[in-house]
Amino acid sequence: MIEGLAAIYIFMLAGFTGYEIISKVPVILHTPLMSGSNFVHGIVLVGAMVALGIAETTTEQIIGFIAVLLGAGNAVGGYVVTERMLEMFKPSEKKSNGEGS
C-alpha cells in the first residue's frame, strides 16, 4: 500500500516535521516535549494490535500479547506522565501573569 518512492517521501517529510517542531522550543519545555513525543510513539500499540490480531500459532499469540501489553503501557503511561507534567505549568503561568497586580 505504501511502497517505494511514496514511502521515502513520507519518511523524509515526517523527518523534517519532527525537526521543525523541536527546533523552536524553549528549554523549559524540553522535558514535557520529550515526554510528549514518548507518548506519540505509543502509536506502536496500533501495530501491536495488528500483530496479535494476525497471530495464528500460540508462539505468535504470546509475542503479540507482549507487544500489545508493552504498547498499551507506552501509550497510557506516556499520556499520564505528560499530562501531569503539563498540569504544573498552569498555576505558575497564572502566578507570573498576575504578579503585577
Binding site: A14, T17, G18, L33, M34, V40, G47
Partner: peptide, 18 residues
Amino acid sequence: NAAMIIAGIVVGSAGSLL
C-alpha cells in the same frame, strides 16, 4: 500503517535533534 510511520519518524527526528 501510515500513522505509525509518520508518528514514529516525527518522534525519531525530533528526538535526535533534542
